[in-house]
Design a protein around this nucleic acid. Structure first.
Lengths: 131, 131
DNA sequence: TCTGGTGCTTCCCATCCTGGGAAGGTCAAT
DNA sequence: ATTGACCTTCCCAGGATGGGAAGCACCAGA
């Protein structure tokens, strides 16, 4: 299977497959004589794992750790759970930050007429004219 | 006022001040004969504006637009409000995505014993073993 | 006046993940 | 044999920030 087919089958673009290989997230693929990368079904499992982990917001480094845990038949589920919950906390921190931004802007916007007049509490708020 | 003092007074690091200048967000500062950038009080206003806008999650391009609106005494407040609410929507989209990630992980983790045993629904979920 | 410490300058690198595109080689079907 | 789709590597971009190096400028104290 060529990289393009592996990309379609796994949902990871060919570009990203090459990049994950470069980052050490997947082992260097076998090559044909012409230099084409060759993938087998088992490689697709790993790619799909990576894609799902990415969809869950894990970073490359964490995905590496998850892959190691996945391959380690003797790992304790506690190790995985700890990683997962730490990641949830990180996500929640980002959510909180974004929510505060949105709330601040909504607050400013609530006082803005939003008509043809130039007076604008939003710009006043950002500029500090109206603290 | 040197760039270091402007940085302290505005809350924008010297590095970022240079970068904003390069990006066209602030006009090229005047220079001493030795090449040092010179800032005046009015420049600080602009820097503080940028910092607050950044704190609200606006990107460089949007901050440029906000600055233009800020300087334009004849703009309609509706224009500003539209931008602000669009940005709120963008923030909410990101929040939603992050919340879905966190929720998915929490769901997987809820079924994970988190003890010394190797069985782990989290890894099963990511790998697709347990769809 | 010399000197040391601090601050300024530019330039490069790294992050984190993704995509675009160029130049050139390969494969398979016509 | 030609063509079109696919592969290879390499470079570039983004968006915002920080680290650090090499070299020059400034100021206070001896």
């Amino acid at each position: 299977m060529n990289i393009g087919q592996a990309a379609k089958a796994s949902g990871v673009s060919a570009k990203m497959i090459r990049w994950y290989e470069e980052q050490g997230l997947i082992p260097g693929a076998a090559r044909t004589e012409a230099g084409y990368r060759i993938y087998r079904a088992v490689d697709l499992d790993r790619l799909r794992f990576i894609r799902r982990a990415r969809d869950l917001g894990f970073g490359v480094k964490q995905i590496g750790e998850l892959l190691a845990l996945w391959q380690d038949r003797t790992r304790a589920s506690a190790d995985v759970k700890r990683m997962a919950l730490l990641h949830v906390e990180a996500l929640e921190a980002r959510i909180t930050a974004l929510r505060e931004m949105a709330q601040s802007i909504r607050h400013l916007a609530a006082h803005c007429h939003g008509d043809a007049r130039p007076e604008c509490p939003i710009l006043d708020g950002i500029s500090g004219t109206r603290p």
